Amino acid sequence: MTFVPGAFVFFGLIALVVFLSVVIVQQGTVAVITIFGKYQRVMTPGLNFKIPFIEYVYRRISIQNQSVELEFQAITNDQANVRFKAMLVYSVLNQSEEAIQNVAFKFVDQRSLMQALIRTIEGSIRSYVATKKQAEILALRSEIVAHVKTEIDEMLVTWGYHLIDLQLNDIAFDEAIMRSMAQVVASNNLRAAAENEGQALLITKTKSAEAEGNAIKIAAEAERVAAQLRGQGIALFREEVSKGMAQAVQELKDRNMDPSLVLFSMWTEAIRHFAEHGKGNVIFLDGSNDGLQTTLKQLQGLIQKNANDELTE
Results as ranks from 00 to 15, higher is better:
T150N: 08
S187F: 00
E175I: 09
Q167G: 07
A215F: 09
E143F: 06
R230W: 08
A182S: 03
N169I: 05
L168F: 01
E239D: 09
E143H: 07
V148W: 11
L229T: 07
I177T: 08
E240G: 11
R255N: 13
I144H: 10
E223M: 08
L190Q: 00
R238T: 01
F264Y: 13
Q250N: 15
Q199R: 12
A186Q: 08
A227N: 15
D258E: 15
E143W: 04
A227D: 13
P259Q: 08
A182T: 03
G244I: 03
L263C: 11
A246F: 09
L252D: 08
A194E: 02
L156C: 01
A227S: 12
V184Q: 01
N214T: 07
N214S: 05
G198N: 07
H147R: 13
V225E: 13
L156S: 04
L263W: 14
A222S: 05
E223W: 12
E143L: 03
M155Y: 07
L202R: 14
M178Q: 01
E197C: 02
S208C: 07
D174S: 00
L140M: 14
I164V: 02
A246Q: 05
E154R: 09
V148T: 12
K205G: 06
Q247S: 10
M155V: 11
L229Y: 04
E223Y: 11
A220F: 08
M181P: 02
A211W: 04
L261R: 04
N196C: 01
M181I: 04
G233I: 11
R179G: 01
N214L: 10
L190S: 00
H147F: 09
G160T: 12
V225Q: 09
R230N: 11
S187Y: 01
A176L: 07
L261V: 12
Y161K: 11
M245L: 13
A248M: 15
S242D: 13
F237A: 13
E240M: 06
E251A: 14
L166S: 06
E221Y: 02
Q167T: 10
R141K: 12
V262N: 14
A200D: 00
I144D: 03
T204M: 05
D254N: 04
V184R: 04
A146R: 15
K243L: 14
Q228T: 14
A235Q: 13
E197I: 03
E175S: 01
K207T: 10
L163M: 04
R141G: 01
D258G: 10
M155T: 09
N189I: 04
A246I: 11
I177R: 00
L229Q: 12
K217L: 09
S242P: 01
A222M: 08
A235C: 08
D174H: 00
A219C: 04
N196V: 02
A209E: 10
L166V: 06
I171E: 00
A220H: 12
W159L: 08
A220G: 06
E210C: 07
E197M: 05
T206V: 05
K243Q: 10
R255C: 10
A182P: 01
G231K: 14
A220V: 06
E240K: 04
Q247C: 03
L236A: 15
I144E: 07
D153E: 12
D165H: 05
S187I: 02
A211N: 06
K149M: 03
Q167F: 06
E221F: 02
T158K: 10
Q250V: 13
N188K: 02
L190E: 00
E239G: 09
K149I: 01
N188Q: 15
E223N: 07
L252A: 05
A194G: 03
I164L: 05
M178F: 00
